[in-house]
């Protein structure tokens, strides 16, 4: 298994896009930081920006959706799936090694964005606010940031498990990426309707899109009145949905004829 993860990492590290994406993330974060510092009137509160890792937290989702769909779909696209599968390894191992690689990649992104946020904070906003300042009632800036990262990580993986599944079904990056991105951003569009419908039909609160509100609920304690779920329920819900999507992926991948 370690060999397989090494091989997946080898491929990832030899793609130019891997480096381009990391650089892009840092550049975007820096640009938002500089704009907020120079034009605070238009760009709002630097604390809010810092908590979202200078918008990095949103970009990571996009980049991970692209990476997850490509790590599965590229093998079908390039015809390398045969070479991967006819070796001594089991099919399940091949798929799990890809998941592990993506898990490591997502952790790398969060660490990178976190470290860069700290740097930007020190360089651009050293005197503007302290990490211990209150951001939300009961939560300091750094605390809110951590909760945001944890919540985002769980919901991102809920989306990614769906993207990995779709890439597996459609064998195409385009389909998986579009549905993943639409799914992730659909929340903000339909959440109001969803909350209304949930008032009427209580069981709707268990739908996967509602789980995506986890990051907001972690920071703002009153949010559970909207989602109708306690925070632990949402954490478990996210994990269960992730596990279900992963399990379907696993079964499909094992049964596929190539």
């Amino acid at each position: 298994m370690i060999t397989l993860v090494k091989q997946e990492t080898f491929k990832l590290l030899h793609k130019k896009s891997t480096y381009a994406v990391s650089a892009t993330l840092l550049i975007i974060m820096t640009v938002f930081g500089v704009l907020t510092r120079n034009y605070p009137k238009y760009w709002g509160d630097p604390k809010g920006l810092f908590v979202t890792m200078f918008t990095g937290i949103n970009w990571i989702v996009l980049f991970m959706i692209a990476a997850c769909s490509s790590i599965i779909a590229m093998e079908f696209q390039y015809g390398t799936i045969k070479e991967l599968l006819y070796r001594k390894y089991y099919r399940g191992q091949i798929l799990v090694s890809k998941w592990i690689t993506m898990l490591l990649y997502s952790i790398y992104f969060y660490v990178l964005a976190f470290v860069w946020s700290m740097l930007l904070k020190v360089v651009l906003f050293n005197n503007k606010f302290q990490l211990s300042d209150t951001y939300q009632p009961g939560h300091s800036v750094i605390n809110s940031m951590w909760l945001g990262i944890v919540g985002s990580f769980l919901t991102v993986w809920l989306v990614l498990s769906l993207v990995l599944l779709l890439a597996n079904i459609f064998k195409s990056t385009a389909a998986a990426i579009s549905i993943g991105i639409i799914g992730y951003f659909a929340l903000s569009i339909i959440s109001n309707i969803m909350f209304v419908l949930m008032q009427k039909w209580d069981w709707l609160k268990w739908n996967p899109l509602n789980m995506m509100n986890l990051p907001s609920q972690l920071v703002s304690s009153s949010f559970h009145k909207m989602t109708l779920l306690s925070t632990p329920e949402m954490v478990v819900g996210s994990l269960v949905y992730t596990a279900i999507f992963m399990a379907i992926s696993y079964v499909i991948f094992k049964r596929r004829s190539v």
């Binding site: 491929k11 006819y86 070796r87 001594k88 390894y89």
Partner: peptide
């Protein structure tokens, strides 16, 4: 079989067309 791959350690193959990663 698809679930029994131990013997594949002794096998090398090229099937249909070569699978190639363009970036390597």
């Amino acid at each position: 079989s698809p679930t029994s791959h131990k013997a594949m350690d002794k096998v090398g193959a090229l099937i249909e067309y070569p699978g190639i990663y363009p970036f390597l």
